[in-house]
Each structure stands twice: as structure tokens, then as C-alpha cells.
Amino acid sequence: MNNIKTLLLATSALAALTMTAHAQEVTLRLHQFLPAQATIPANALTPWAEKVTAESNGRIKIERYDAMSLGGTPPQLIDQVTDGVVDLIWTVIGYTPGRFPTTEAFELPFFMTNGEATSKAFHEYCQKHCMDEFSGLKVLAWHAHGPGLIHSKNPVNSLEDMKGLKIRGGSRVINQMLEALGATPVGMPVPATSEALSKGVIDATTVPWEVTPSLRISELVTNHTSFSGTHGLYTQTFAFVMNQASYEKLPDDLKTVIDNNSGLETAAELGRVMDQGDLVGLKIATEAKNNIVQLDETETQRWKDAATPLVKAWVDEMTAKGFEGQTLVDDALALIDKHTAN
């Protein structure tokens, strides 16, 4: 009889612990660098947070902190999530040059196609090649934006118009590309772009259409240059990341909610939102009657010829660091082709 009572007490205690675990509520703090009305915060991060809250029956709450409102600078976001200062971040990978070297393959000129396909390719690529660099972090998605353009005060109608132009670039590789094209690159996080343009610190910027409304780019410059063909000039890469300890502390059923809102489809959705945002940005510039230029195939090829040596230089650099540089490039291109065709 005593054994039966002991067993019943133990079973009751286990049931109580299980109920407590399943009743656990958590609040996760999400920090990122753009204003709340920008494309990704408004149309991707907000719906993601609402979906996670709904699927957890209200047990996961996401506190949103936009535009670096918790302090620090955009390049510090990755340290904030690594150190557990915040639970979640969305950031540009290239803001910390040298920290995630294998990801740079997707920033190489004229590799990307569109935001959704390139994001799916990038997520799959990172699962294969980048895990060591993100060790200790729970990556929810890697993704990319749509085709990058040149937005300038004076028209850029040819490669010669790039000569000496002070252009904002968002990463090490993109700055190298701008230099190869004859420009003078000026590295800075995207939130600094508007002020830099208005004060004449830069003459132009490289960003996709989707971010131009929140930065007022179409008001600050009146010329926008894009390219012919299926491959955009460049893309920038992003990571949506969770602190590993914050994830591990969750009960299993809440981990499942996070897992169900992570991965390839989450990356694809982030890319889709970027593509949709491109249409909005283009519409604003068109309605403002700005000068929107698409370089023809012949001129686009001149830019490709000028930028292509950067690919071999990157392969050689990565190989010298102990990576299989050519394999990284080949896999990036193959995955972009695969997901663009699907």
C-alpha cells in the first residue's frame, strides 16, 4: 500500500511539473535597426511575432524594439544576441566584416536573381557551409533582399558615370565591387544613408527599392539605375537570429512553435516581403517622376566585365584562409539557379 501511495504521489508531482511547464509564459525581446514602418519590420517581423504568439496560445510574447531603441549600433546587434542582452535580432550580416566570411559569396556581383529565390538559396547554402560561423546561435532564417540599385543625385547612365562617385556601400564585398566599378565606396549602415545624402557626405547609395520609402531616398535623389537581365547588381544578406540559451530555456512545446516558424519557408517569406517592398519603392519613385534608368544589355555587360574579377579575387582570398573558395561560389550559383527555376 505504501508503495502504491508513493507511486501515486510521484505521478501527481510529475503531472504538476508537466502542467507547469506547459503553462510557462515567456517574453522575448526582438531588437533591430530599421524604423517600425520599414518593409521587414512592418510586413515580416510583425506578422511573424503575431503568428508565434497565436500558435503558442499567447504563451510566447514578443516585445519589439525598432531602430536600435535598446541602444548600440547596427553592427553590435550580433553581439547583443550572442551575449543574451536581447533574445532575438534581425541584422545585416555584412555589418560585421570578417565574422561570417562564407556568407559573402551571395554578395558577389551579378549572382542574385530575386529576393525570394535568392533567400531560399542562401538559407540552404548557409545550412551547408555557415553553421560553424554561427555556432552558439539559433538561426531562424538567413535571407537576402531584391536586386540592388544605384540611387544617385546625378544620372548614372554608363560605367564612366561611376568614376569618383562617393557611394554608400553596405558591406566589405559591396564596397570592393563599387571600387572595381570606378566609384569611391563609403561604408555605413543603411540608417545613416539619409543624413549622409542630405549633407553631401555621399553622392549616391546602393540599396534595393524596398528600403527607399523609409529612408526617403526618392526625395533625396532623383536618379535610379538598374540593369538588364535576370541577375541583379548585388544583394545584401541578413540573419534572423535567436539567443541559444533563450531557445534552450523554452519548454519543448514552445521550442516547437519557434522551430515551426524557422527555416527555409521563413527565409522565403522574408525574401517575398522584400520583393513586394521593391514594387512599393519603385511606385513611389515613378509617381514622383524621378529619372528611372535600366541599362541595356550591352551596357550591363560592361559592368559585369568590370565587376567579375572580384569573384576570382574572393575565391583566392577564401582559399588562402583555408576555405574551398571555388566550391562556395559554385554552390551559391547552383542553388540560386535551382531556386530561381522552381
Score class of each variant (00 low, 15 high):
residue 2 N to D: 14
residue 7 L to Q: 10
residue 8 L to S: 12
residue 9 L to P: 01
residue 10 A to I: 10
residue 11 T to Y: 06
residue 15 A to Y: 12
residue 16 A to W: 12
residue 19 M to A: 15
residue 23 A to I: 12
residue 28 L to N: 00
residue 31 H to K: 03
residue 33 F to C: 11
residue 33 F to D: 07
residue 38 A to I: 03
residue 42 A to C: 07
residue 54 A to C: 04
residue 55 E to Y: 09
residue 55 E to C: 04
residue 58 G to T: 05
residue 64 R to H: 09
residue 66 D to M: 04
residue 66 D to C: 08
residue 68 M to P: 12
residue 71 G to W: 14
residue 74 P to G: 09
residue 79 D to E: 13
residue 80 Q to H: 14
residue 82 T to Q: 08
residue 83 D to S: 11
residue 84 G to S: 05
residue 85 V to C: 01
residue 85 V to P: 00
residue 87 D to F: 03
residue 93 I to P: 00
residue 100 F to R: 02
residue 102 T to K: 13
residue 104 E to L: 03
residue 105 A to S: 13
residue 110 F to P: 02
residue 111 F to I: 01
residue 113 T to I: 14
residue 113 T to K: 13
residue 116 E to M: 08
residue 117 A to C: 08
residue 128 K to L: 13
residue 132 D to R: 14
residue 136 G to P: 05
residue 137 L to D: 05
residue 137 L to T: 07
residue 152 S to N: 04
residue 155 P to C: 02
residue 155 P to M: 05
residue 156 V to M: 08
residue 158 S to V: 02
residue 160 E to T: 12
residue 161 D to I: 13
residue 162 M to W: 00
residue 162 M to H: 01
residue 163 K to M: 09
residue 163 K to V: 10
residue 176 Q to A: 14
residue 178 L to P: 03
residue 182 G to L: 08
residue 188 M to N: 05
residue 189 P to G: 03
residue 197 L to D: 02
residue 197 L to H: 06
residue 197 L to Y: 07
residue 198 S to D: 07
residue 200 G to P: 07
residue 200 G to V: 04
residue 200 G to N: 07
residue 202 I to G: 04
residue 203 D to N: 15
residue 204 A to Q: 04
residue 206 T to L: 11
residue 206 T to M: 12
residue 210 E to W: 15
residue 214 S to F: 02
residue 216 R to L: 12
residue 222 T to D: 14
residue 225 T to M: 12
residue 226 S to R: 02
residue 230 T to W: 00
residue 232 G to N: 11
residue 234 Y to G: 01
residue 235 T to H: 04
residue 236 Q to M: 12
residue 237 T to P: 00
residue 239 A to P: 03
residue 242 M to G: 09
residue 243 N to T: 05
residue 251 P to E: 01
residue 254 L to Y: 06
residue 254 L to E: 04
residue 255 K to C: 06
residue 258 I to Q: 07
residue 265 E to I: 00
residue 269 E to P: 00
residue 273 V to A: 03
residue 273 V to W: 00
residue 279 L to C: 04
residue 282 L to Y: 14
residue 286 T to W: 08
residue 288 A to C: 04
residue 288 A to L: 10
residue 289 K to W: 10
residue 291 N to M: 04
residue 296 D to M: 10
residue 297 E to H: 13
residue 302 R to Q: 09
residue 306 A to E: 01
residue 306 A to Q: 02
residue 313 A to Q: 13
residue 316 D to M: 11
residue 319 T to K: 11
residue 325 G to T: 13
residue 329 V to L: 15
residue 330 D to A: 08
residue 331 D to Y: 09
residue 331 D to I: 11
residue 335 L to W: 07
residue 341 A to T: 06
residue 341 A to R: 10
residue 342 N to T: 14
